[in-house]
């Protein structure tokens, strides 16, 4: 219980936040532009992790497998969009929720049929599996630092894509008035498919990076999906900037809260009480945070301009 522990946990929180950001960015893009609530986003994350687990033994190289897994997630996202989700854009949110809920059941079971019910494990590549000393007494896994780096790169890429490219311009235009963009001669259907594919690839990337940290198993996308919802509700639906801020916030509060809340409570209450109450409050902390933020800002921290 020292400064070094605190720093390590804070870094873990940031790293978790980065993973959440990759998920939230895709989800918020898809919602902001197509007005689609996609619960199956967590399934794409899970499929990314499974693709990695399946491809590492085949290719023998983590990085090749990772690239292929992200590409496979992209392809899968596009297929799902073409088959099922495309018809949902004009339906109400309830239809979207139910339909994508059905997709979750399907994907969770499919991976169990193909890869079995037991969890798979992926080793991080040797070059990233060591530790690095950040400060005296603070050592940190290279792999987790890499995740942060990738997340940062994706954030910069999205900023560039959204604000400084023709595609980004079309995406923003499509978000504010899809009929007008279509009337101006843009193939809006293709644009939607591309955006959905981008979101799927980001979710797949998050899954790929989670593979070596977590166990790869059926249903792994569900818990992160709910957290992603919390993130984009806090950040403001449709806002990538909001997603970034909120995901780091949620990541840090969740991780640090889990470690330190029982300790803090232990200093005030008896050990028996704190060991009972601590984990309960810690697991609720981000939802309390969300409720508090929504109480003051019902549209989230950075409401998208719509």
């Amino acid at each position: 219980m020292t400064l070094s522990l605190f720093l390590t946990q804070a870094l873990n929180g940031v790293q978790f936040g980065v993973m959440l950001f990759l998920m939230a960015a895709g989800l918020t893009l898809v919602f902001g532009i197509m007005n689609l609530v996609n619960l199956a986003h967590g399934s794409l994350y899970m499929m990314g992790a499974y693709f990695l687990a399946a491809l590492v033994p085949v290719t023998g190289n983590f990085f090749v497998a990772a690239v292929l897994a992200v590409a496979a997630s992209l392809a899968l996202g596009i297929v799902v969009e073409l088959i099922a989700l495309r018809t949902l854009y004009r339906r109400d949110h309830l239809d979207q929720v139910l339909c994508t809920f059905g997709l979750i059941l399907f994907f969770n079971e499919i991976v169990r049929m193909i890869w079995g019910a037991t969890a798979l494990f992926v080793q991080p590549p040797p070059i990233l599996s060591g530790f690095v000393q950040l400060l005296p007494g603070v050592i940190y896994p290279v792999y987790r630092l890499t995740i942060m780096g990738v997340g940062l790169a994706v954030a910069i890429f999205l900023y560039w894509l959204n604000g400084h490219t023709r595609l980004g311009m079309l995406i923003r235009a499509g978000a504010s008035n899809r009929a007008m963009v279509g009337a101006l001669g843009v193939n809006i259907t293709l644009l939607y498919t591309l955006v959905f594919g981008l979101g799927a690839a980001l979710a797949g990337l998050a899954g790929v990076m989670a593979g070596p940290i977590l166990s790869v198993q059926s249903g792994m996308g569900d818990s992160i999906l709910i957290l992603t919802f919390v993130v984009i509700v806090i950040g403001g639906i449709g806002s990538i900037r909001g997603a970034l801020v909120a995901s780091i916030l949620v990541g840090v509060v969740d991780t640090v809260g889990r470690v330190f809340l029982p300790l803090v409570l232990g200093a005030v209450f008896s050990p028996a009480t704190s060991s009972k109450v601590g984990p309960a409050i810690a697991s609720m902390s981000i939802y309390i945070l969300m409720a508090a933020i929504l109480f003051f800002r019902p549209q989230g921290l950075f409401p998208a301009h719509r």
Binding site: L98, C99, I104, F106, F107
Partner: peptide, 10 residues
């Protein structure tokens, strides 16, 4: 069941 739900909604 999953695909049945999807079809039901659609």
């Amino acid at each position: 069941l999953g695909p049945i739900l999807v079809l039901l909604v659609l």
